[in-house]
Design a protein around this nucleic acid. Sequence first.
RNA 1: UGGGCCGUGGUGUAACGGUAGCACGAGGGAUUUUGGAUCCCUCUGUCCAGGUUCGAAUCCUGGCGGCCCAACCA
Length: 554
Amino acid sequence: MEERSLHFIEQEIEEDNRTGRYEKRVHTRFPPEPNGYLHIGHAKSICLNFGAAARYGGLCNLRFDDTNPTKKDVEYVESIMADVRWLGFDWGDRLFYASQYFGQIYEYAENLIRTGKAYVCELSADQIREHRGTLTSPGKPSPWRERPAPESLDLFRRMRAGEFPDGSRTLRAKIDLASGNINLRDPVLYRILRAPHHRTGTTWCIYPMYDFAHGQCDSLERITHSICTLEFEDHRPLYDWFVQSLGIYAPRQIEFARLNLTYTLMSKRKLLELVRDGLVRGWDDPRMPTLCGLRRRGYTPEAIRAFCQRIGVAKMNSTIEVGVLENAIREDLNRRAPRVMGVLRPLRVVVENVPEGRVEDFELANNPEDTAAGTRRVPFSRDLFIEREDFMEEPPKKYFRLAPGREVRLRGGYFLKCDRVVKDAQGAVSELRCSIDPATRGGQAPDGRKVKGTIHWVSAAQAIRAEVRIYETLFTRPDPDEGGDYRRNLNPRSLEVLKDCLLERSVAGAAPGKTVQFERHGYFCVDPDSREGALVFNRTVSLRDTWAKIQEKE
RNA sequence: UGGGCCGUGGUGUAACGGUAGCACGAGGGAUUUUGGAUCCCUCUGUCCAGGUUCGAAUCCUGGCGGCCCAACCA
């Protein structure tokens, strides 16, 4: 863990520990709604909740907020558990569902009715909205607001028994119709909804609203710090009202600003649209900000956790530049990814002073950052491939790579000089005729002469063919919603598929998930689409590219 | 006079009445068998106006600006 000062939530927790508010207990929870896949924004919340518990020797529960039966899916439940585990966190035996408390929450409702704090209302949804007033004008009381408690109780029990059609009645709290906080204008507590629930089946035909469930679930689990996002700040007085009216244990809610990232959509609804409308290949499309997408892309849990650490926690709405995320994964992979040579856009090179059929092996370091990573043998021969962009017939200033008459170093091999350029019928460069200096074996010239550039290469006969998928941001604008429709900002070049890449043979047979650095390109990982003898790689992130920056400026 | 929250370099985030620091970014240099990595240097900031104070990003007052709230969603 990096050295840093406490963020405001940790400060509040420490303050509570000092005053003994919760007997120095720290118990948090991560409460996702199982209606979508977890994304990088959730990672912030997960790190925050599990992180705080770990830091203060406490516990963190995983609880599915499944109060609304209509849009849940076991697929989501399973993916969420897998993603939290993958991120590196453990909820032990504390896996809960809001739905498991339905019985208790129902009792709470009856309790409020008996004490005159809730009533059964027969207004329609539209009428309730009209009665609620506006932001600047107070609400009007429902005609059923003053109905005697026994009558409400009877009606509520009959709602539960299924005597009334969906939507015909609600249970409402009786709070304050004139409150500036609209959440306090007699909010709906229960609705009639004949929808089977993924956990409770058809046991219930009435379901509590999120607002009437969430705080009580926290209370029942004896959560000390209910960490949530800013938009629930206005709901806190309501939760406090429930807890007080019911006389139950009171957790403390603390709100923080959710994560926003440039060039990234974070809305679950829009992410779902991308998947459903086929704008991406699925929830785990490597261009998606979902945890499964990032995983497939080659992001590591360590990098994501470091990222969450680095961005901090505060109440100010803000947007982090994606570069910070990219930096986190580069930093992690630089330390651990084995280096390998891969030519993405091949250009044939014939080394004329190497005899045909001769193959020699070079021993190359797997990771210059880590000698423990060992070495590997890389074959060299007369027929090579180099990167097309590592040769220019008319090189501009500051171009250090190969050009007619110029000499460069083949990474780990010899100095190579371009003697002749061969072109096809269309005039495009099709092949280079080159020669090596045998005295430079290993990459040093005995006469001390230097070369400005070092390029990567593969030996034609031994190279393996692979598909490489290059990703750019999914959107062309830092704010995908700019202009009102994110679809119009989709980046047509967010995916480029390179089918004829040639890789060093040492990666043959690599398993899905395996990450390597293709030298001078970036970090790549094996995609699950790979088949025997047909590897597919995803580019996780490119290396920093100073040359590209120089070109941009000209 | 609806309620709530928030304003620190380009982007994030520290400071808790006492030298505005860190990361990303940008620029420059050293080094380098990855134009990578590493190291060094530099750059730009307290929303505004008053007040309190020896001293204010911090406390007070008033502005200005931004975000959230009017689902039987969460």
